[in-house]
């Protein structure tokens, strides 16, 4: 399925469940997502991890409504609890089956996103391991000067921005040297297809969602 259409469908779902209060719909979405992930060979361990990750915030939201809510407190508590899980599992159907390169290809080829945005973000994204290391280096450099740089220290962010400025210029120059010209046409080796099928799935998905919200008597 075309990644951009998949993302669009998931965004529609996420928006819609943000404004509805149907526990069983949230649960149904989680189940559908698990089935989808299972079909795509997601490991049980990963699925278990997805259950653990949102647990704390889910409990937080649950207890807030249960103790300090108004109206039908129990209903709202469970709506929010299941909603988080719906966000995380539907999100996982995207992030665990699609990589950022496929999304960038689709946005560039099917939606005419200027290539400087697609490849600029990819270039930065591919530096993630270096960035994680650099944050450690900045912190260590501070400690060696006797200064602890915490997440509220302006210097920590200042240093990070200095490095970002430096790297962004290096990368932009390197990409230019590899023939990249802003706003110039390029050819595409990996073809990102956008079939009628994708639109049909999107349409069916959105209709299915409306049936879930307005037609099926969940309670």
């Amino acid at each position: 399925m075309n990644p951009s259409i998949k993302l669009l469908l998931l965004l529609v779902i996420a928006l819609e469940i943000s404004f509805t209060m149907i526990i069983s719909l949230n649960v149904a979405l989680v189940i559908l997502a698990i089935i989808y992930l299972g079909l795509h060979g997601t490991k049980l361990k990963t699925l278990a991890w997805l259950l653990v990750v949102p647990l704390l915030p889910a409990i937080g939201l649950w207890s807030t409504q249960y103790i300090n809510g108004s109206g039908d407190k129990t209903l709202m508590a469970w709506v929010l609890f299941t909603r988080i899980y719906a966000f995380v599992f539907t999100g996982a159907t995207f992030t665990l089956t699609t990589n950022i390169l496929q999304l960038a290809d689709a946005l560039e080829q099917n939606w005419h996103l200027p290539s400087k945005f697609a490849y600029g973000v990819l270039a930065a994204y591919n530096l993630v391991p270096k960035i994680q290391h650099e944050v450690k280096v900045i912190r260590a450099a501070g400690l060696m000067r006797g200064q602890q740089l915490s997440f509220w220290s302006p210097q920590l962010y200042f240093k990070a921005i200095l490095v970002s400025i430096n790297w962004s210029q290096n990368l932009a120059q390197a990409m230019a040297s590899h023939g990249f010209v802003e706003d110039a046409p390029r050819t595409h080796y990996r073809h990102s297809a956008l079939h009628a099928r994708d639109w049909i799935i999107l349409g069916l998905g959105i209709i299915g969602m409306q049936i879930g919200v307005f037609v099926i008597p969940w309670h």
Binding site: L101, A123, H178, G179, F180, A184, H188, R190
Partner: peptide
């Protein structure tokens, strides 16, 4: 490099 793998970087340059 802008891309993740060796192959993709060469493809990127040739597409450019």
């Amino acid at each position: 490099f802008a891309m993740d793998t060796v192959e993709n970087e060469l493809i990127f340059a040739l597409e450019n």
